[in-house]
C-alpha cells in the first residue's frame, strides 16, 4: 500500500515560512530582539540545504567511491570542529580537535561500513545515496554525545583536581583516581541517545521515519528502517563516546600517574 509521493512546489515551501515571519514580527513588536538571529539562521538553513541538495545530486550522479569518501571526510571535519567548539576547556594542541574527531570518525565509519555491507546491502555497498545520509545521521548523534561527554570530563576533572590528586597521593593508579569522573562523563555522553531511544515513537516520531512515511513508504517498512538506524546510532555513539573519553583521560594523565592539567587550555572566551 504505497501511496503516491506528493511533490512540493517552491511556492508551497515559501508559504510555509509564513509562521516564521509571524514569529519575527512578534519579536519586533515585543522587543525580544530575536528577529535578526531568527532571520539569519533561517536564511542559513535555506542556503545550506540548497547547496547540500546540489552537492548530493552531483555526487549521486558521479557515483565515485573516492568522492563519497571525500564528502564523508568533509562531514567529519565539520563535526569535529563542532565538538571542539562545544567544549569550555579543551586539550591543548591538536588533541583538542583530534581526539573527539578521531573517535567519532572511527566509530562512525566502522558502524556505517558494517551496516552497508551486511544489512542494508546496496549495490555497490558504498553507493552515496545510502552511505552519506546514513553516515550523516550516525555522525550527528555521535557528535552530540562526544561533545557532551568531553565537556563534562574536562570541566569535572579541572574542578576536582584536589580530589583526584588526593587519590593519586594515596597510591591510586591514574585510571582509578579519575574513574568517578570518567563515569560521570560517559553518562553525560550516553544520555541523549538513551533518552531518544526511550522516547521514540511515544513522545516523537523520528525525522527519518516521518520523512519516509511522508514520501509514501509503508509505515511498517519505515519503522524497520528506523529501528535499524537507531541501533546503528546507539552503537556508534557509544563507541565514539567511550573512545573519546578514555583517550582524553589518558591524555590528561601521564605514565607516572600524574594529573596533567597543564595539557588543558583555559576556559573558552
Amino acid at each position: 500500500m504505497t501511496s503516491a509521493y506528493i511533490a512540493l512546489s517552491y511556492w508551497d515551501v515559501a508559504l510555509a515560512a509564513i509562521f516564521l515571519v509571524l514569529n519575527g514580527a512578534l519579536s519586533l513588536l515585543l522587543r525580544l530582539q530575536l528577529e535578526r538571529q531568527l532571520a539569519i539562521s533561517a536564511l542559513r538553513m535555506v542556503v545550506q540545504l540548497f547547496l547540500v541538495g546540489l552537492v548530493l545530486k552531483t555526487v549521486f550522479a558521479i557515483a565515485s567511491p573516492w568522492l563519497t569518501l571525500l564528502i564523508a571526510l568533509v562531514m567529519v571535519g565539520f563535526a569535529g570542529r563542532e565538538i571542539r567548539a562545544r567544549q569550555e576547556r579543551r586539550l591543548r594542541g591538536v588533541w583538542g580537535y583530534g581526539l573527539g574527531a578521531g573517535a567519532m570518525m572511527l566509530a562512525g565509519m566502522i558502524v556505517t561500513t558494517t551496516a552497508l555491507t551486511t544489512q542494508i546491502g546496496p549495490d555497490p555497498w558504498w553507493s552515496p545515496r545510502y552511505a552519506l545520509p546514513l553516515f550523516g545521521m550516525i555522525l550527528g548523534n555521535a557528535m552530540t554525545g562526544i561533545s557532551l561527554a568531553l565537556d563534562t570530563l574536562t570541566t569535572t576533572v579541572h574542578r576536582e583536581k584536589l580530589a583526584i590528586e588526593a587519590q593519586l597521593l594515596l597510591g591510586y593508579r591514574r585510571f582509578d583516581a579519575v574513574a568517578p569522573f570518567t563515569r560521570r562523563a560517559l553518562r553525560a555522553g550516553f544520555m541523549p541517545i538513551i533518552n531518544s531511544m526511550a522516547a521514540t515513537g511515544i513522545v516523537f516520531l523520528p525525522g527519518m521515519m516521518t520523512g519516509q512515511i511522508l514520501s509514501g513508504v509503508d509505515p511498517a517498512e519505515a519503522v524497520k528502517y528506523q529501528i535499524l538506524v537507531m541501533f546503528l546510532i546507539g552503537g556508534a555513539t557509544g563507541l565514539g563516546v567511550l573512545g573519546a573519553v578514555l583517550a582524553s583521560v589518558w591524555r590528561l594523565t601521564d605514565n607516572r600517574h600524574r594529573l596533567r592539567l597543564d595539557r588543558l587550555g583555559g576556559p573558552a572566551a
Partner: peptide
Amino acid sequence: LVPAESGWW
C-alpha cells in the same frame, strides 16, 4: 605527601 589543602572524593 599531605598537601596543605586536602581533597575528598
